[in-house]
Write a protein that binds this DNA or RNA. Sequence first.
RNA 1: GCGGAAUUGGUGAAGUGGUUAACACGCCAGAUUGUGGCUCUGGUAUGCAUGGGUUCGAUCCCCAUAUUUCGCC
Length: 378
Amino acid sequence: MKIEYKLLKKEANTNARLGKIITKYGEYSTPMFMPVGTLANVKTLTKEELEAMNAGIILSNTYHLWLRPGDDIVKEAGGLHKFMNYNGPILTDSGGFQVFSLAKPKDISEEGVKFKSHIDGRELFLTPEKSIQIQNNLDSDIAMSFDECPPASANHDYMKKSIERTLRWAKRGKDVHNNKNQALFGIVQGGAYEDLRKYSAIETVKMNFDGYSIGGVANDGESKEDMYKAIDYSIPYLPEDKIRYLMGVGEPVDILEGVERGIDIFDCVLPTRIARHGNVFTRNGKINLRNAKYQRDFTNIEDDCDCYTCKNYTKAYLRHLLVSKEVLAGRLLSIHNIRFLIKLTEEIRDSIKSDNFLEYKNNFLSKYRGDKNEINKK
RNA sequence: GCGGAAUUGGUGAAGUGGUUAACACGCCAGAUUGUGGCUCUGGUAUGCAUGGGUUCGAUCCCCAUAUUUCGCC
């Protein structure tokens, strides 16, 4: 079956919404944070660990799986779920972001995008049709349209041409999409330009996708103000009865700002990436566990955290693992960071239910920003 | 006891008679938002064993001392 979305409640004072996603694996509440597992695994984590932290949808990537092991092999394995042994919903990104991160502007044409494989350097060509076809083979629950994700610095003229092409690509992808069990989402682009976001949203919605995402907001050099603008300019034109997905966003602050503006689902590599480099989220802000001050800190990361790591390990031990470059460090910190974001969305949902999202947000942020706020006040 | 060699930061080390003593590791910080990259970016010796001398100027030349090390008795 194809996933369905039900809007359950709109918060009284903001655009925040409570919803549920009905899938063949069960029902999942929104707002939701989706861990990223580009290469058919959430880096360092097992299925059991993801379940223990109450993860719902996870992400995987078309471009990466196309290159290795190949979508034909995943299909032969019985689809992505069987291949990676994950019994929950999977969303596949289209490879559009890799257009932004790996290809040069001159390699983007109407037909598609010329890539150099990051694995062996050989030349590749990805088109909207090819991306959808790969995602059909992967048999994810949600496929994404193949889009161009222009840099924040793109001027109005380039951005307009880009979103028009992305609209044509969306149509081409939709025309070849033939997996009845798979939802297909459209992507709104347009940078921080109000007219372009509006145009992109309206035209994308006309194609009647199963859900809509807002892209191009977490690029290099993009300011938070531009991110919030991009959401504000897009949301009014998206239908209420469809999922709204903010692509690539992930800092606790941005999740709160997104929810307030009406976003339902988020994904981000941040919790796992910073974990591997020694950083963890806490209610009092992000900390770097490699810092010398944790050498003799025999307390856990957070007392009130229910994750496996906090229940079992001290900061001094985690620091030791990090400094010794033990792979267990990345795993234990990833468990904490993902659980932190999932817990955040659980609390956000509660606050929407009781119509005090803003109070929750302000409380959270004043603690999370801590000293920084004090400094700003001076 | 005699003779030779060496002595540069936390470590391994480059180096030159004349502005800020290379590099690497370590250490100390920071970054990271649809994941190519356990990655990237900074900082880290007021001093070249100690004391004297030569010189306009010495980590670099000379002498002594200390320590280490090699060979011989």
